[in-house]
Simulated scan of single mutants.
Amino acid sequence: MPPEKTKAAKAASLTLRHLNKDSRGGLLTVESTIPVGHGYGSSTADVVATIRAVADAFEMGLRPSVISRLAVEAEQASDAIAFEDQAVLFAQREGLVIEHFGDALPPIRVIGFKANDGQLVDTLALPPARYSSEEIQTFSMLRGLAARSIRFQDPRLLGQAATLSAKISQRHLAKAQFATALGIAEQFDACGVQVAHSGSLIGIILDASAVGIADASRRTAHAATAAGFKDVVVQPIYSGGGAVEI
């Protein structure tokens, strides 16, 4: 329940098969406040929670790598949330970790929001991006930049990598007002900008350890709201606290 959670239902069946258990009966209820179709990872959250719940019903645990493989089988492409705070380079359509970066992301705050068109994105109907050779070479450089940012816990390096990646994504799944978001990030000396590569979300990355971070977060969020962005939220990442709606 509810019946439209078909990916979760498939994930439950796949997990039962993996555990070599039959499905004589049981009730799985999925409750979530995560909006769908914008890049929040709602379907992966449903699927990963389902896989864990089914395994827990048999008092069994599954490794993140197994959960990710089952999740991809259930929904074709999956986020890496099964690895929780481990920063990994993840093949979303294969369910495989390409590289473990050895630590969590550096402490940051993300001012997240949707562009004012608010268009839903059907992930399954979205064709995979066909990157140019130049873009692929850039991704190789970004991989090294991300690894260095995590090794040295440097939010600015992470922001640089995210911004360059977001600009490449803009050529394949354009976000309305992307240039406006870049302007706000520059105005408040943010670390960078990130986007959902299969959704409508944009985020401005701030250094959570910077002096005056609370005030900077508020001012950045208010600027995003004034620019017409929707559902503006301040989300601390590995820096304590929960999301704050603006």
Rank of each mutant, 00 (worst) to 15 (best):
H100L: 10
L182G: 07
A221E: 05
K230F: 11
A12E: 04
C191R: 02
H38A: 09
I150A: 08
S209A: 12
D189F: 11
F178E: 08
R130D: 10
R143Y: 04
A74K: 02
I246Y: 07
Q92N: 14
Q86V: 06
P64I: 03
D56E: 15
V195H: 00
A55Q: 00
L126M: 13
D22I: 10
A179C: 08
I205W: 02
R219A: 07
Q170A: 07
M141H: 14
Q76K: 14
R52A: 06
R52E: 08
S132W: 06
T15G: 00
A210P: 03
G95Q: 01
G39C: 05
E135H: 10
C191L: 08
A179N: 12
T123I: 13
A174V: 09
H197F: 10
S32V: 00
I202Y: 02
L89C: 11
T123W: 02
R17H: 15
K21T: 01
C191P: 05
A224C: 12
V66Q: 04
I237M: 09
F58D: 04
Q160H: 13
D231Y: 09
A12C: 11
A223M: 04
Q92V: 11
G37I: 09
H18G: 06
I98R: 14
L126S: 06
T6P: 06
I98K: 13
A49D: 03
K7E: 09
G212Y: 06
A146I: 06
T33A: 15
K10H: 13
G192M: 04
A179V: 10
A49Q: 04
T33I: 10
A82H: 01
L124A: 15
A53E: 04
A174Q: 13
S133I: 15
D215N: 12
N116F: 13
I205A: 05
L182A: 07
Y131W: 15
G159K: 03
G102M: 09
F139Y: 08
K21G: 03
G144R: 08
V195K: 00
I237S: 08
A82F: 03
M1L: 13
L27N: 12
F188Q: 01
A55F: 01
S78Y: 00
D117F: 08
G212V: 04
Q137E: 14
V234T: 06
D189R: 13
L164N: 10
L96A: 14
P2Q: 14
I108K: 03
R24Y: 12
I237Y: 05
R69Q: 13
S133K: 14
G203E: 01
C191K: 02
T163Y: 00
